[in-house]
Structure formats: structure tokens, C-alpha cells
């Protein structure tokens, strides 16, 4: 018989199974002869941090997706593209202002370079944070569709 700790220790367990599930590729989906069960993840707000609204929304979806997977369906949970161009642009403009750079002094291309850099650093934060709670389909990183 195994030695068991007096209390359940979530952090260890969660990391262990998360890695195991990833390794077994349970979250990926390709068309096959099973019945599909698909959910598209609504856009997160680009405020930079996870809040209770996201947690609730994504947990509900994860519950439905997991049940479908256990029912033998081909469960596909896809994040859409990142969004909120006004909010993103406003954030970048503000950040630049703090560095003493005015948007009006930049060309369109220069501004987009700054926006990209910001996106690289903060864009994926919410999805990454969500991973400790739920598991979206893999292989679909947050995307920015209008760029090359």
C-alpha cells in the first residue's frame, strides 16, 4: 500500500496530470468517424489579467467538453483569435506615452512594431493563466489574423 499524505495536495497532483494529459494528446482534435462536439472560446478582454468572469465562462466550457469526450465524442475546444483592437491600441498608446513617445510621431509601421512587441509579451497571458484551470485544444495558439 502506498503512503498517502494526510491531506490532498492539489499543486502536485494538478501538475502531474496536466503533463500526462498533454503527453497523451487528449486535447487535440482531428476529423474522424466519431460525432464531433465543438465549442469556440469567446474573446478574452485584453486587460492583461484573468478575472472571475473568464474563469467561470471557461470552466463551464471545460465541463461540457470533458463530458462530451467521455461520451466518446470528438471534443474540439478552439480559442478564436485575439480581439479588442481599440483596447489593445489604447494600451500600447498609453505605454508609449509613459516612455515619452507620441503615437503621432510614429509611422504606421513603427507603431505596429511596438504593438507587436507588447502583444508578444502580454498577449498570451490570459490563455496561459487559464491553463492551470482548464485546457483548451492544443496547437491553436492565440492568433493575430491581419499580420503576416
Amino acid at each position: 500500500m502506498k503512503e498517502r499524505s494526510a491531506k490532498y495536495t492539489p499543486s502536485e497532483t494538478e501538475e502531474k496530470w496536466y503533463e500526462h494529459w498533454m503527453k497523451k494528446n487528449y486535447f487535440s482534435s482531428k476529423p474522424d468517424n466519431r460525432e464531433p462536439y465543438t465549442i469556440i472560446i469567446p474573446p478574452p478582454n485584453v486587460t492583461g489579467v484573468l478575472h472571475m468572469g473568464h474563469m467561470l465562462n471557461n470552466t463551464i466550457q471545460d465541463v461540457l467538453i470533458r463530458k462530451a469526450r467521455q461520451e466518446g465524442k470528438n471534443a474540439c475546444w478552439v480559442p478564436g483569435t485575439d480581439h479588442a483592437s481599440i483596447a489593445t491600441e489604447a494600451k500600447v498608446v498609453k505605454l508609449l506615452r509613459e516612455k515619452g513617445i507620441k503615437k503621432s510621431d510614429l509611422t504606421r509601421e513603427e507603431f505596429l512594431d511596438h504593438a507587436w512587441a507588447w502583444k508578444e509579451e502580454y498577449g498570451g497571458i490570459i490563455l496561459n493563466q487559464l491553463k492551470s484551470l482548464v485546457h483548451p485544444a492544443t496547437g491553436t495558439e492565440p492568433l493575430l489574423p491581419w499580420m503576416k
Binding site: P36, T38, I39, P42, N57, L64, A68, C76
Partner: peptide, 19 residues
């Protein structure tokens, strides 16, 4: 056609009523 024919329409949309 391949993926869309299989996955579409999707099963459910879960979202806040604000959008």
C-alpha cells in the same frame, strides 16, 4: 471543406449576455 464540413455547426456557444 474538410474541417468545416465535419465541425460546423458547432455544438454550443457559452458567453456572457453582454455581448
Amino acid at each position: 471543406k474538410e474541417e468545416i464540413d465535419y465541425y460546423y455547426p458547432t455544438s454550443v456557444l457559452v458567453t456572457g449576455w453582454d455581448i
